[in-house]
Amino acid sequence: MVLHENEVAVDDTVVRTLLREQRPEWADLPLSAAGAGKENVMYRLGDELVVRLPRTVDTARSVQKEQEWLPRLAPLLAYSVPEPVYAGTPTSTFPLVWSVYRWIDGELVGAGSVRDWARLGADLAGFVRELHSIDLMGSTRTGDLSWYRGGYLPELEWVSSCFDECRTTLGSQLDVETLEQLWRAALALPEPCGHTCGSTVTSDPANC
């Protein structure tokens, strides 16, 4: 499914070509589509690896940040996070940076795989809380580190403008009405503890 007007096309042939050019020892391993999100497309490579390719020039900006920070965060988290194995470089076939990670076994979240949605929500919230509690290791929440991710929801005004674009681009492929309702409901929720306002992190319970 194409999600962006400026999306870089990718398929099995593109991935095979990248591997032959940069990691020929992996080029003949079994390859299969392994899912896609708004910003990346993934292919499982053999039994132990996954190739992750950004969809656009803008989303490719986060690749270097992932490769740098995932190894730092991994020892501090209770759950497994992707382990970078290779940092791919742009080519004439695929003009963006890309990555290879260790494969993490699991199941897609859905009605057939989740027996207790409340427990899943609590586990996810616990992981996010754990992630937010990690020291910034001398870095700051400005510039390319924070990019557009995270922050106080009402400050993310650009999100509201995306729903009409999704209706035009995706049509009936995505339930945009439900997504917009969830977003509006999230905006109406009370301010959380530890939220980020500009460059200041508020964690005082008296301010919650």
Rank of each mutant, 00 (worst) to 15 (best):
G171E: 07
R72K: 15
C197W: 04
E48P: 00
V201D: 01
L53T: 04
L49K: 12
P190E: 10
A27T: 01
H132L: 09
V41R: 10
D47F: 09
R61S: 06
V2G: 08
S139A: 13
L45I: 05
G37L: 10
G194F: 04
R184I: 01
V41C: 05
L108N: 03
A111N: 06
E107F: 05
T59G: 00
L187Y: 01
A74T: 04
L29D: 02
L73R: 11
A9D: 06
T89W: 02
E68V: 08
E68M: 12
A33S: 11
R23Q: 13
L120A: 02
E7M: 06
P205N: 13
G151K: 09
T56V: 11
P75D: 06
F163W: 15
L120G: 02
P192S: 03
T89G: 01
T169W: 02
L45E: 07
F94D: 00
V57Q: 14
L18S: 03
A87L: 09
G110F: 11
L108R: 10
G138V: 05
T91H: 09
S92G: 10
S62I: 06
G143H: 07
D105Q: 14
T200K: 11
G121N: 09
T89S: 10
G35D: 09
P24K: 08
R119F: 11
R23L: 13
A206P: 00
T169Q: 13
V81Y: 12
D144A: 03
R20Y: 04
W183Q: 03
L70I: 10
E83N: 03
G194P: 03
L3K: 07
L187P: 00
L73Y: 13
M42E: 03
L179A: 14
E191I: 06
W117E: 10
R72P: 01
Q181F: 12
V10F: 05
G110Q: 03
I134D: 01
W98E: 01
E191M: 10
